[in-house]
């Protein structure tokens, strides 16, 4: 059987700050190499709710302040309800960069302004003003083995790069994406990084998260197929020598700098 998936990419022109599209390129290629048809659909101001409802996976990158200002109303009012339905239907999603701030209940800016989030994840974010340093740098986290796909290589580490001024605090019922080994993660205090709810991953890691983490890319593809075709579909193993070398190079680099 020939499988196909459709990925909805939220505001690709506005929410694509620093290599975020790398995730789309990785997902697309890993599908193509396996003979799975992968269609990317930009979700923009003109997109209709009924079309967004047809997506098999959702991806959101990071936006700069002005760009976020342009789209935030449209996202909250015209995309929020359908995104919530997708989440409840177990449609997988990946949200990188500033997404923990966007998906949570609110974001308190440095000058005390409370910006409402999408309210899909039980978490809140605060910016403590420019007195508190930004969290910038390479990041290494440990993830639970719930992300393991039988038959494919699994490592319980994820490497990334974070660059955020705000801090995020998870509600009691919400699981983090992983535990921080190197870097700050959500807030630099409680070792949590990002969040996972149903099949959505939110992470502060910006840019091409999936490039050096092929196991997360395959988890998303595998979940997408499972939800769409209502059965477990075995993913063919790919030649990922370079991808794992890149992952290992970061493990080595970060452990060395830590010591």
């Amino acid at each position: 059987m020939k499988y196909s998936i459709t990925i909805g990419w939220l505001y690709p022109e506005l929410m694509s700050t620093y290599g975020d599209r790398g995730n789309i390129l990785v997902l697309q290629k890993r599908c193509e190499w396996r003979g799975i048809t992968c269609t990317i659909v930009p979700i923009d101001f003109q997109s209709k709710e009924e079309d967004i409802a047809k997506m098999d996976m959702i991806f959101g990158g990071g936006a700069q302040d002005r760009q976020q200002g342009i789209l935030i109303d449209d996202l909250r009012k015209r995309k929020g309800p359908v995104l919530k339905k997708l989440l409840e239907r177990n449609i997988p999603g990946l949200f990188v960069c500033g997404s923990p701030q966007l998906l949570g209940s609110f974001y308190m800016t440095g000058d005390g302004k409370k910006l409402e989030g999408l309210g899909l994840f039980d978490m809140e974010s605060r910016h403590f003003g420019n007195g508190k340093p930004r969290c910038i740098g390479n990041m290494l986290i440990r993830i639970p083995n719930t992300f393991e796909i039988p038959g494919l290589r699994f490592l319980d580490t994820v490497v990334g790069f974070e660059n955020h001024g705000g801090r995020t605090y998870l509600g009691t019922g919400l699981t983090p994406f992983g535990t921080v080994l190197v870097g700050n993660g959500n807030n630099g205090e409680d070792t949590t990084e990002g969040a996972r709810y149903k099949n959505w991953i939110a992470t502060y890691s910006h840019g091409p998260l999936l490039a050096k983490n092929p196991h997360i890319a395959d988890w998303l593809i595998s979940k997408t197929l499972e939800v769409k075709y209502k059965k477990k579909i075995k993913l063919q193993e790919l030649d990922d020598v370079l991808m794992w070398q890149a992952h290992d190079a970061m493990l080595k680099k970060l452990y060395v700098t830590k010591e």
């Binding site: 975020d20 599209r21 790069f161 840019g207």
Partner: peptide, 8 residues
């Protein structure tokens, strides 16, 4: 120090 940009 961030090489993410190569994906752009």
């Amino acid at each position: 120090t961030d090489v993410s940009w190569i994906w752009d």
